[in-house]
């Protein structure tokens, strides 16, 4: 399978965190200044991270005490860094963990998330609504009753945002992200028979 565009993914990783912090009013001037595009680039969800992986990460981090070394986490799950880092990025973007000097700390919100027994992903619904591609999907659903993944990916592309240079692959990645996160969080509804998303 073709991998997502690394350059886009990497730059979005930097930008996502700083701009997310901007919205929360917690960003230091230094990280904003380090990446000129971060102030205009909205947070973007890494393409290949699934909700179950983030839930697993939070549970393991919480179960092992206040913090865990990233390398130990990788060992614990026989996961390589290429797999683990986007999961960590996503968990940090959602405000569930804080990564500092190679250690992963559970935030207060992450601790609440860990202790919630059912439908954990619904707790991050409001945060997801500020992250792409969910933000654009919700905007489009507000304009017209239902949208396809293609319409969302085209709208994002026109804003200069994509996960892959191929439109078809980009659409598939957007579709997977919307299904794996937005439906879980009850942000959107989806009907596989029509391929259309609606507000939940």
């Amino acid at each position: 399978m073709t991998k997502p565009n690394d350059s886009i993914h990497t730059s979005s990783r930097e930008g996502v965190q700083s701009s997310e912090k901007n919205e929360a009013g917690e960003n230091s001037g230094a990280s904003q200044g380090n990446n000129a595009s971060s102030s205009i680039r909205p947070p973007m969800m890494p393409a290949n991270v699934r909700a179950g992986q983030v839930i697993g990460l939070v549970e393991v981090t919480g179960g092992l005490g206040s913090s865990i070394d990233v390398s130990k986490l990788a060992d614990e799950f026989s996961a390589n860094i290429e797999t683990l880092l986007p999961i960590l990025d996503t968990a940090e973007m959602l405000g569930l963990v804080r990564v500092e000097k190679g250690d992963v700390y559970l935030t207060e919100f992450g601790s609440k998330f860990q202790k919630t027994s059912r439908n954990k992903v619904r707790l991050v619904k409001d945060i997801l609504a500020k992250i792409e591609p969910f933000k654009t999907a919700v905007e489009l659903c507000n304009q017209k009753k239902s949208v396809s993944a293609r319409e969302v990916s085209d709208a994002l592309f026109s804003k200069g945002l994509s996960w892959h240079h191929s439109p078809e692959m980009n659409e598939a990645l957007v579709q997977a992200l919307l299904i794996h996160w937005a439906i879980y969080a009850k942000l959107l509804k989806y009907d596989g028979r029509t391929g259309m998303f609606e507000l939940a």
Binding site: G52, G56, E76, A79, I87
Partner: peptide, 12 residues
């Protein structure tokens, strides 16, 4: 057939 992190929470 699941990755370790997914299996970890699904098991519980």
């Amino acid at each position: 057939s699941l990755d370790n992190l997914t299996a970890e929470h699904l098991r519980k």
